[in-house]
Design a protein around this nucleic acid. Sequence first.
DNA 1: TGGTTTATGTGCAGTGGCGCACGGAGTTAT
DNA 2: ATAACTCCGTGCGCCACTGCACATAAACCA
Lengths: 296, 296
Amino acid sequence: MSFDHWDEIRTAYQVARMGTVSGAADVLGVHHATVIRHIDALEGRLGAKLFQRHARGYTPTEAGQDLLSVGSRADDQFTQLAGRIKGRGNEVTGDLIVTSINGLSGLLVPAMGEFQERHPDLRVQLVTDTRLFRMEYGEAHVAIRAGKPGDSPDNIVQPFCTSSVGLYATQAYVDAHGLPDDTNLDSHRFIGSTIENSRAPFLRWLTEQVPAECIVFRANELDTFRHAVRANMGIGFISRAEVREEDALVEVLPPMEEWSTKLWLVTHMDLHRTAKVQTFLRFLKEKVQDWPVEPA
Amino acid sequence: MSFDHWDEIRTAYQVARMGTVSGAADVLGVHHATVIRHIDALEGRLGAKLFQRHARGYTPTEAGQDLLSVGSRADDQFTQLAGRIKGRGNEVTGDLIVTSINGLSGLLVPAMGEFQERHPDLRVQLVTDTRLFRMEYGEAHVAIRAGKPGDSPDNIVQPFCTSSVGLYATQAYVDAHGLPDDTNLDSHRFIGSTIENSRAPFLRWLTEQVPAECIVFRANELDTFRHAVRANMGIGFISRAEVREEDALVEVLPPMEEWSTKLWLVTHMDLHRTAKVQTFLRFLKEKVQDWPVEPA
DNA sequence: TGGTTTATGTGCAGTGGCGCACGGAGTTAT
DNA sequence: ATAACTCCGTGCGCCACTGCACATAAACCA
C-alpha cells in the first residue's frame, strides 16, 4: 500500500523547487528528457497533474506544491541521515557491547568504565555468558574468547593476551592437608569443572593428573572456583589476574606453562573497521600492559 | 549536497523492516538480487555497513536502524502524499481562482459566495484586471473572457453567455438634451473608452457612429462608465446586467444586436478535468440561467 | 522585426540495471 | 542423520531507461 517510486518524487520535487525541467535536470545530474519522463510517469501514477507546463517552465499545481513540501522534508531527512551515517564510521558513540569470558570481568569492568569516561556519548555493556554470543547477529561488537574460535570467516580474530591460572588453597586447607607435590595429588581434594570435555588447558591437565574421585566439588564457572577455595573445600584453579593479596591464598604448586589460556579479541568483519571498535581495541591493547597477564 | 538515490533508501528501509533480503524483495515486488545490489551500492556510497549479513537474514547495524526510522517516516509521508493527490482530483477543496471581466462582478460575486457555502473547504477568489491573466502560469483556474481568445491550444474554451449592453443616460441629462436618434448623435455627449482600438463590439460601434469630439469622457473600465452616466456626464454604455430599477436610468436608444459581446469560459487543459473546476463550471452554467443575460 | 536564448518535447541507439537460474550455506524437522 | 526448507550470493542475457540529437515554441533583446 505504500508508494513505490521514490526517485520520481525526488525528480518532481526538484522540478517544483527549480520551476523548470532543465534546472531540475541540471541539479539532478540527468538529462532533461529523463526528468520529463519521470514527471509524466508520476502524474500518470497519481492520476493528477502536478505541474502546468508553459514556455517558461513548469509551475506546480496545488498537488505539486504539496509534493514540494513533502519532498523538501524528505530531502532534508535523507541528507542528514547520509551525513550521520557517513560520519558515524568515525565517531565513538552509541552502544559498545563487549562479551567476554567472565574470568576477566574484574579487569574489564574498570577499563570499560574508563573508556566510557573518555567517550561520554558512548554506552558500554559487558555481557558474560557461557553460551557463545554470535557476533554475526550483532549481539556484541567485541568479544574476548579463549582458545582459537577461528571457524567463521566473518570474524576477525587477533591475539589479546595469555591468561594464566594458579593452583590455590587457603592456609586453613594447607594446615589440615599439607602441600601437595607431583607425587601425591591423589591424596588431596580438588575443585573441578562440571563440563566433561572442556577445552581449557588447565582443566585438561586436571582431568589427566587427578583421579575423578579426588574432585570433591564441581562448578561450571571459573568464578565459582574461587568461592569454593575460600570455603576451604580444596585446591582449585584461580585466574592469577583475580587473586588479590588480601585473599591470603597459598599457591600450592608452581604455575605451569601449559595451564595458560590464550585469549583472543574477536570482532565481526562488518564492524571491525569502524572507529568505535578500532578505538576500543587500541585502548584494550594499551590497557592490557598494566594487567597481571602476559600481553600478546 | 543532497542525497541522490532515494529508491535505494527505500530498498534498505524495507530490508531493515523485514530483516531479510527475500522478504524485502517480496514487499518491493523486485527480485532479491536487485535488493542485494541496492544495499551494496548504498553501503558503498555511505562508506558504512548498514546490515550484518548472516544465514538468517540481514540485521541492521546502528546506521541501519537510523535508516529504518528515517525511511519509515518518509514512507508514511509519501504514502499520505500519494493518497492526498490521488484523492484531490475528486475533491472540491483548496483555492478556486476565477478571473473575469469586471462587468460581471455584480453577478459573479454572489454566485461564488453560494458556491463557497456549498463547499466549505474551498477558498474562492475573484480577480478582475484589464491585463489577461495567464492560466498557463496557474494564475487562475477559470477565466471568463470576452471575444474569442482562442489562440493557446492549452486553453479549453466553451461558450458561456452573451452579455448585452444598453445606451443609458440619467433623466436629468434627457431633460437637458433630449433623446437622441440615429440622425443627431453628433449633437450629444458620450462616454467612451480610453482604449483606442478596443475589440468590444459596442465600442467599435461608438467609434464608427459618433465623432471623437462628442466623447466628452473616457475611462478604461466599463464599470466607470456607470458612474459617469450617473454624474450626468452624458450617454454611455452600461451592461444590462448591471442596471437596476433603482438606478432610474433612461435607455436612450433601443439595444442593438451587434452591441452584444459573447463571453467564454476558459480553463487550462491541466486543470479542466479536475472535479473542482468541473463542479464550478457546472454550477456557473446552472446559475447563468437566472442572470439577466442570454445563456449560450 | 528578426535573431538569440531558453525552454519543452520526441525518435533513436546504447547501456546500466533487472530478472532468471543456479549454487552454497545454514537451520529446522522428521 | 538426512532431507527439506530458507536465505544469500553471482554470472548471464535481456529489456527498460537513459542520454543524445534535433525539432519546436515562446520570450527576450536590440
